[in-house]
Amino acid sequence: MSRSWMAKDRLSKEYEDGVESFIEIAMKNTVDPKRVHCPCQKCSNLKKLDIKEIKNHLYFNGIDKTYVKWIWHGEQVESTPKVHNENKEFAQVFDDPIEMVRDADDRFVDRPEEFVKFLGDAEKPIFPGSPMSKLVVLVKLYNLKAGSGWSDISFTKLLDLMKEILPKDNEMPSSLYEAKKTLCTLGMDYKKIHACPNDCVLYRNNLENATECPTCKTSRWKRGKEGKEGKKGIPAKVLWYLPPIPRFIRLFRNPEHAKSLRWNEDGRIKDDKLRHPADSLAWKIIDEKWPVIKKDPRNLRLGLSADGINPFSNMSSSYSC
């Protein structure tokens, strides 16, 4: 069937018909409708969800436009076409992520040693002699993609080009699938939370199913053409939330970082002088109030930075906290 609907507006009839056709194909080729690879832009076939939830994701997040061969939903992988000798190695690298992503779901749950090996691979220099690791380069590139609104197709083409430009034996991923797989496995995943267009509330917890803001009564959903109410499912505003727990886990996996994270307990000079936040009254109050936290030297304290926010909602003011 045609894939042209994947590039259509999510409010259009073509996109709606395309989603229905895709769901029909997915249902025909799945054994368990509660464990199906989700092809939305957020999940990129890395997560398995209920078929009904996948349908919502396709409206909320849109389908991953680089997923043109539906290999996780019944279609067969085509053999790699013949290429010139200088491109054979590149073609093989490009094919590897398909097999890697196929079993990415829950891959490291029961094999932590494999995670360590995978982590070591991600921390290799992006090319021999480079001061930047594969992980650092991927994070910077993905930040540029998210901040600049690059499409998945343009990002994949950029990775392809950099793969060819960089010196031989470089570690640059050659596809968006591989880049996302690396970031998600290393705990760099994110969550999207719908928000009021006027920043009144986040649609979570008891407001998860609300359709309008309880404060300003503004619709949760994006408006269509000519200001008409848009189709339910496309949020007017989205907050990108970076869960901290996966990052803490990853920090403690590194021996040097783990040592630094315990410094407030193991290396700090304790002489009643204010040398570290742990010497402050606020820190000591928490220790007294929750002694269980104090007993574990691995406990972490988070600080909230208010730099730059304006508490009086006057955006024209030069005042800054």
Rank of each mutant, 00 (worst) to 15 (best):
Y15T: 12
S280V: 06
F127P: 03
C213W: 01
L304H: 09
P297R: 07
A146Y: 09
W283D: 00
M100C: 01
V19L: 07
E99S: 04
R253M: 14
A195Q: 15
L144T: 09
K181T: 12
G18H: 07
A306N: 09
L183W: 02
I286W: 09
S313M: 06
E114R: 13
V68P: 00
I25M: 13
R301Y: 12
P246S: 10
D287S: 10
L119E: 11
T30M: 02
Y177L: 12
S148G: 03
F60E: 10
V19S: 08
V68M: 04
L138R: 00
R247W: 06
S317V: 05
K13L: 09
S219P: 06
L58R: 12
A195R: 15
F22M: 05
R102M: 12
L239S: 01
S79T: 10
P277G: 03
N61G: 03
G149I: 08
E14N: 12
P112C: 05
S317Q: 06
P255C: 08
A146H: 09
V137R: 04
D106Y: 02
F115V: 01
H57D: 04
L207E: 06
E78M: 07
K222M: 15
D64V: 00
V83C: 12
D189W: 04
I285D: 00
V238H: 03
P277E: 05
I234S: 10
A282V: 07
K124G: 01
N198F: 01
D279A: 04
D271V: 05
P311Y: 08
V77H: 02
S148Y: 11
R35G: 08
P39A: 13
K52E: 10
G267I: 02
L274W: 05
S21N: 14
S175M: 00
G303W: 12
V201N: 11
R250A: 15
H73N: 14
E114D: 07
F108Y: 14
I193G: 05
D189E: 13
M188I: 01
A306L: 14
V292L: 13
D106N: 14
K289H: 11
K294I: 02
G129P: 03
I51S: 04
I293N: 08
L281H: 09
E212P: 07
A258P: 04
V101R: 11
N143L: 09
V292A: 15
A146S: 10
C200N: 14
G267T: 08
V137D: 06
I23R: 07
M315G: 03
L183H: 04
G120L: 13
R3N: 14
C40V: 06
K145N: 11
E75R: 06
R301F: 13
E99G: 05
D307V: 11
H57V: 10
